[in-house]
């Protein structure tokens, strides 16, 4: 297959109560719980989307990252064929554990559909798709660690086969207050070559 060069157009990392966009710290607060951090980040970036507060932590994390990278890109009147290829280690386990607690005590049995729906990792892709009106290729994967080889292969093949014009890739890991999000937008232009070495370097920074 002919390989056209692909580039990382922009990238962001969210961890340890800090948001870093294209290598620059754009929001940071003192140590706090994720619910508080995510709310303050939402306010800081002036996001107006009340549905955010109904999301589980994994979706909030993915949503915030996508918000920063797709905001500049998004004209609601023009259809964007930006695919979403996301991955993590803990799937939806943080919400799974919460849901399991709601059904484990037969005397205190309250399964909630609003919680159950988030017991799938790809729900965060749905949230991002709705927000940015991306009727585009979507898929979610689980790996032990961020897998730059697979992520590069899959983003490139979506671009090469014209299934997508751009690909928003993400590692969105959340379990029990421990979180890391690394999102990056892959396309035909940008300052960074889209390859394994660059991805490793940007992920580890």
């Amino acid at each position: 297959m002919v390989t056209n060069k692909t580039y990382i157009e922009s990238f962001c990392t969210i961890q340890n109560n800090e948001v870093v966009l294209n290598g620059e710290s754009v929001f940071k607060i003192d140590s706090t719980a994720f619910a508080d951090f995510s709310k303050k980040a939402y306010q800081h970036f002036d996001i107006n989307y009340p549905k955010f507060f109904k999301m589980d932590s994994l979706s909030k994390l993915a949503f915030l990252g996508a918000e920063l990278l797709l905001k500049a890109d998004n004209d609601p009147l023009v259809e964007n064929n930006t695919a979403l290829v996301f991955s993590n280690k803990s799937s939806s386990l943080d919400t799974d554990v919460k849901y399991q607690k709601s059904i484990s005590d037969k005397e205190n049995y309250f399964p909630s559909p609003a919680v159950f729906v988030y017991t799938l990792p790809n729900i965060c892709l749905g949230e991002i798709s709705i927000r940015h009106q991306l009727k585009s290729e979507n898929s979610f994967y689980i790996f032990a660690d961020f897998n730059p080889v697979f992520m590069e292969q899959y983003a490139n093949l979506l671009l090469e086969t014209k299934k997508a014009d751009k690909v928003l890739c993400g590692w969105v890991e959340y379990y029990n207050e421990e979180y890391t999000a690394f999102l990056y937008l892959v396309g035909k232009q940008g300052d960074f070559m889209h390859n394994e070495q660059t991805l490793k370097k940007l992920y580890n920074n």
Partner: peptide
Amino acid sequence: TEPIVVSNACVSGVLSVSVAKRLVQSGA
């Protein structure tokens, strides 16, 4: 090789066929 887990709700099973096809098609 490291396993690839596809977990994408109720489309997971048929999506995995699509992912496998694309990986073979691209020569990976």
